[in-house]
Write a protein that binds this DNA or RNA. Structure first.
Lengths: 127, 127, 127, 127
DNA sequence: GTGGTCTAGACCACC
DNA sequence: GTGGTCTAGACCACA
C-alpha cells in the first residue's frame, strides 16, 4: 500500500479497511490485523493505525474485544455505504462533475474509464 | 460562497477564480476584485485571499499591476486547462471511479447527474 | 449477564459475586461456581474469572480449598460493606450528585427510581 | 484542576469543558483556550488536550475555525444534555441506585448530600 | 499565532 | 499477546 501525501495516513488506512469490507475480503466478525502488526506491515507507527481503528470503531465499522483485538462489525457494510455514499454523492461528486464539464472531458471518456476500472476490481463475492 | 472545511480556504478561492475564467465570466485582462474587497465579501482574512492570488499569479492565471490590482492573464484559460486537466484525470478521477463502483452507483445515475450539471452551467447569465 | 465495556470484565464479575453475597443468595461457606464453569457460562476466558476470584480472595470475600473450589467467606458481607461503602460514598457518589444537578434531574425523579429499584431487589426469589 | 487517576485525562478534560458550558460559564460561539494554552494550564501535553477537543468536536460541543481556534458550538448545551443525560440515567444511575440499596444507605443521607452539593454549585446564569 | 499529523517510546490494564 | 493512554518533540499547513 502506498500513501498519497495530500491525505492523512490514518484516513487512508481507514479507507483501505472499508474497501476490504466492501469488496467482501473481510467478512463480518473476522479479526482484523492488530495495530502493531498492521503498523509493521504498512511501515507506520502503531499509534497511527490505532487512530484509524478508533475512527472506524466510532462509526461502527469495527468493534473491539478487550484484550483480543478488533473485529469487523456485522453492520460494517451497511454503515460504510450509508455514510460514505451520502458524502460522496452530495459533496464529492458535484465538484467532480462540475470539473468534468469545465475541463471539457466528454462523457465517453468517463464511461470508458469506468468500464476499465470495473474490470480491474474483482467482482465482490455475495455473502 | 460557502467553504468546504476539508479543503484549505485559499485553494477554494483559487478554484473559484479559475471557474469564473473557464466559464467566460472574467475575460482576459479584466480586473478581478481587490484582495481587500474579496476578503470582506467572503468574510475571510485578506491574507488568505492574498495567498490565493499569489498562487494563481505563480501559475500565470492572473497578473499584477502594482498599485492597481490583479488582472486575468491572457493565457489563463490555457494554463488552467493544461494544469488541472492533467491532475484531475490522473489523480482525482481514478479514486472517484473506484468509489463509484464500490458504492454500486450505476452509470445511468452518473450520466443523469452529468447532464443536469451541464444544464446548470451552460447558460452564462448576462449581468 | 452482559458486560459494560467501559469497565474491566473481571471487576464486573467480582461485583456480581459481591452482589450475590449482599443479597443473601450465597450464604457463608457456600461453594461458588468453579473458574471453568463460570468462564463457560459467561463466555469469558477462565483466566479472567480466576483474576476476579483472586481479587476477591485477597479481600477475604471468598476463600479457597485446594482441589475443591472457592467458598464464600464468613466475613464476606462485612468486608464488602466496609470496603465498598467507603469508596462509594467518598468517591463515586460526589460525582453522581454533581451530574444529577448539572443535568437538572429533580430529586423526585431520583427517589422514584430509588423506590422502584428497591422493589426489584427486595424479594429474593426462592429457587 | 486535579485529575482522578482511574479515568483517562482526556475524558476528564472533556467533562470539564462540558461542565463549563452547562454552568453557563462559556457561552455559545465563545473561543475556548487553545490546545497549547490549556496544556500549559493543566500541566498536560497539548496532544492530550487535542484529543479532548477532537472528542468534543465530533459530538458537536465545540467547532473549529481554521487557524483561529475552537469555539463553543451553539447547540453545545443541548447536545451535552441529550447525550450525557441519556447515558447517565440509563446506564450509570441504575448501578448507583443498586449500590445505595445494597450498602443500606438511607434515602435521607442521599438527599442531604444532594442539597449540600446543590449549594456548592453556583446557580447557572440564564443566557 | 492556530490546529493537525506523525513518530518514538514508555507504561499500564486486560485477556 | 491485545488495546489504551500519555509524553516529548518534530514538522507542516493555515490565518
Amino acid at each position: 500500500m502506498e500513501f498519497r501525501d495530500h491525505q492523512a495516513i490514518y484516513v487512508q488506512i481507514a479507507d483501505y479497511v472499508c474497501e476490504q469490507v466492501l469488496l467482501g475480503q473481510w467478512p463480518a466478525d473476522e479479526k482484523i490485523p492488530s495495530v502493531r502488526d498492521l503498523g509493521v506491515l504498512l511501515q507506520v507507527n502503531p499509534n497511527t493505525v490505532m487512530r484509524s481503528y478508533e475512527w472506524l470503531q466510532q462509526r461502527d465499522v469495527i468493534y473491539n474485544k478487550r484484550g483480543i483485538g478488533f473485529f469487523v462489525s456485522p453492520q460494517a457494510r451497511a454503515h460504510i455505504l450509508e455514510y460514505r455514499r451520502e458524502v460522496f454523492l452530495e459533496q464529492e461528486l458535484p465538484v467532480v462533475l462540475r470539473n468534468l464539464i469545465l475541463y471539457d472531458i466528454p462523457l465517453e471518456e468517463l464511461t470508458r474509464r469506468y468500464d476499465a476500472c470495473r474490470r480491474d476490481l474483482s467482482p465482490p463475492p455475495q455473502p
